[in-house]
Every structure is written in structure tokens, then in C-alpha cells.
């Protein structure tokens, strides 16, 4: 199936965001903000009773989708994501996207894509764009 303008990217879904993985991310990023690991702090700030996922993790779900579709991390060449909303522990998420343009540059065939991350309740989390290298093998596999 050819990749063309309007082709949807197979979505990447998260059944339930893990509070435990937020703790790992806090440690990896030296991120001391307790909203990512301490429910008491989230409550004290009036932000609910579930910890809040790190923005880079939310970005990663979109990039996971692109890398799985394109075949490798190295094929994801650009992404620009705007942070719109929060993700809380146990939220279900869906990253999705659509090809908006195809072009050739530097010997590569590139697909420009519109991408997004949404919570299952419909709230927007990330909106943006990305560019990935596409090739004939992807079309044969699609």
C-alpha cells in the first residue's frame, strides 16, 4: 500500500500510564518536581490525586509510534510538539498521526506528518508535526 498524503500512521496506545515508571523517569532526568512521584504533593497543589506524567514521556509515546512505523529510531528526523495538557497516572492514551506531505531531500524520501497525543477522555495532550524517512520496504509492509 503506497504511502501518500493522508495516509494514517498506525497509532501507539498506552493502556494505563504507570506511576512507577514516572519514578524511574524522575531519577533518570534528575527531576526533583514531586508532582511526578508524590501524590501528597499533587493533592497539596490542588491538581488531583494522581501523579503527573513527565512531558518527555508523553513526547516519547508519539516518537515510539513514528519509530515503529518507520522501522527505526534513526528514521525520525524532526519533531516539534506543543504541550497542551497533562497526563495522570492510570490514564489511557493514544498517539496518532497522518502524512501531510512527501518530498525528497538529501537522497531520502521524507514524510512530513501531523501528530498528536490524546487522552482516552478526549483531552488533548500534545499537538505537533514530525518528519520521518520512509522507503519502499515500508510501503510493501503496509
Amino acid at each position: 500500500m503506497p504511502i501518500e498524503v493522508g495516509t494514517p500512521i498506525p497509532p501507539f496506545e498506552v493502556a494505563a500510564v504507570s506511576a512507577e515508571k514516572m519514578k524511574t523517569m524522575s531519577a533518570l532526568m534528575h527531576d526533583s518536581n514531586p508532582i511526578h512521584f508524590d501524590v501528597q504533593s499533587v493533592r497539596a497543589l490542588g491538581m488531583g490525586d494522581r501523579t503527573i506524567n513527565q512531558g518527555p514521556s508523553n513526547m516519547a509515546y508519539v516518537i515510539n509510534m513514528l519509530a515503529i512505523w518507520a522501522g527505526s529510531y534513526g528514521r525520525v528526523r524532526d519533531f516539534r510538539l506543543r504541550f497542551i495538557g497533562n497526563v495522570f497516572a492510570d490514564d489511557a492514551l493514544r498517539a496518532s498521526g497522518t502524512v501531510t506531505a512527501l518530498r525528497r531531500e538529501g537522497g531520502h524520501r521524507l514524510a512530513d506528518c501531523e501528530v498528536r497525543l490524546d487522552r482516552a477522555d478526549g483531552a488533548k495532550v500534545l499537538l505537533g508535526s514530525a518528519t520521518v524517512i520512509v522507503d519502499d520496504a515500508m510501503e510493501a509492509a503496509a
Binding site: 498506552v14 533518570l28 516519547a60 509515546y61 515510539n64
Partner: peptide, 15 residues
């Protein structure tokens, strides 16, 4: 080790 942990935490595919 950082790549391993990050990819696990981000639910990323392993390569």
C-alpha cells in the same frame, strides 16, 4: 543502562 531504563520507562520498542 540509561538507554535501557529510559526505553523501559517510555514503553519504547527496543532495538
Amino acid at each position: 543502562w540509561r538507554a535501557w531504563l529510559a526505553q523501559d520507562a517510555m514503553l519504547a520498542p527496543t532495538q
